[in-house]
Design a protein around this nucleic acid. Structure first.
Lengths: 226, 226
DNA sequence: CCAATTTCGAACCGGTCGGTACTATAAGAG
DNA sequence: CTCTTATAGTACCGACCGGTTCGAAATTGG
């Protein structure tokens, strides 16, 4: 039963709307926003030009819809990657690795629509959307950090907000490197390394294993209260 | 003596070549590559259309020249920021803060031509240039880490390459957030936090101040030898 | 003052772009 | 079978874009 309700009246569409939307995502993802022409979309989506305008509106409207759908899907997957593992460190590794894998997926454009394409779109609504998306991602990571505090994995004075921003920054950096062609293997290794780092706590003073550090007193470098 | 040699013969130019190049940088920086039209450049550079072609070549050639000049200047400033301070931690803070300040400079476009604009240009030469620039930046940071090892600030088994990549990723992330409108103050704070983090060493086991961590054994998360 | 040289500014050209009108086609409704 | 509805496909339109041509202007050399 592919459709239980009555079929609409006129000539049936020759394409699936969501499938076309996904194809549009790939087009924008691989060519950017300004770089994409309507003909690119027509060719990539398998939708006739007038149908495209009738159903999806103009290029900007279509892009916004693509952006929202993409962000929702990717956000869900990212949240899943972050919240599935048991330990905090593995959660972060999973989160970062998910970003890398998604950005280096074969059969799809490299990088990320939200990181590599959308920020360059000169449009207030897009900017606002990105701000919100970023804030949401950071909030997600913060939440995971707080769970880690509850579980005793990190102390209660752990700099949650700052480290969460840092994780998001790292995700962006890894994603951009993916788009520049850095191999997945390298990025996955760096993601693991980053996960190790992000859960580290500041040292009380400086007790490096290689004896006395010469001028290791930085005059700073501690979180508020030890 | 603005010119010691004989003045060239014909009608003198009505603009300064380097000044025009700088203005072109701003145009590309603020509008991207695909988003820029020749008329944008003509208006922004104060150079007549035919003169633009005669002197700078077409849009792609001009962009490559802009890119090279920008990277050279910015690379020099970044290296200076990185190599001036005495301690490793302050070097990294200086490096990251320089990136933030440059990306949030008033009177100039936000973000960074190398981070926010160039990666989206669909051109093999641009890609190659970016790869080299990134490698150069990472090498610079690695060099600073090795100096830190020599000075005894960090142990000799410090994961130099991975941490250097991490610093570059962080720089990119901060820069992109700058372009998205995150205030400078926030970014500077995060840059400091990041500098603190990047020089940290892994703990031997896990001796957080908040008693026993429940499931803190990750089965991983250590650098080769403690 | 005149010729040579170089740049400037406007106008121009073929091509492409975003967006639309028009017609043919495929379905259900009666 | 005919009418209505909705989409497909083509062809078209004005606007704009990248790039060039050409005459006017500004300067040096004689």
């Amino acid at each position: 039963m592919i459709q239980n309700s009555t079929r609409p009246r006129g000539r049936p569409r020759s394409f699936d709307e969501l499938e076309a939307l996904e194809k549009a995502t790939q087009v924008f993802w691989s060519k950017g926003y300004d770089g994409v022409t309507i003909d690119d979309l027509v060719a990539g989506m398998g939708v006739g030009r007038p149908s495209l305008y009738a159903i999806f509106g103009d290029k900007r409207t279509l892009f916004l819809r693509v952006l929202r759908a993409y962000a929702e899907a990717k956000g869900a997957r990212a949240a899943n990657a972050l919240l599935s593992p048991n330990t905090l460190r593995d959660s972060l590794a999973s989160f970062l690795k998910h970003a890398v894998e998604s950005a280096t997926q074969e059969g799809s454009a490299t990088g990320c629509l939200l990181v590599c394409v959308a920020p360059l779109v000169d449009d207030e609504e897009v900017r606002q959307f990105l701000q919100n998306a970023t804030a949401g991602a950071a909030a997600l990571v913060q939440h995971r950090f707080r769970d880690g505090i509850s579980a005793g994995e990190i102390p209660s004075d752990f700099p949650v907000a700052a480290r969460a921003s840092l994780v998001i920054d790292l995700t962006r950096g890894l994603t951009m490197r993916a788009q520049m062609g850095t191999p997945r293997k390298t990025l996955l290794r760096d993601a693991e390394e980053a996960a190790d780092l992000v859960v580290l706590l500041p040292r009380e003073v400086s007790r490096g294993p290689s004896g006395s550090a010469r001028k290791a007193s930085t005059g700073r470098g501690r979180v508020p209260r030890p």
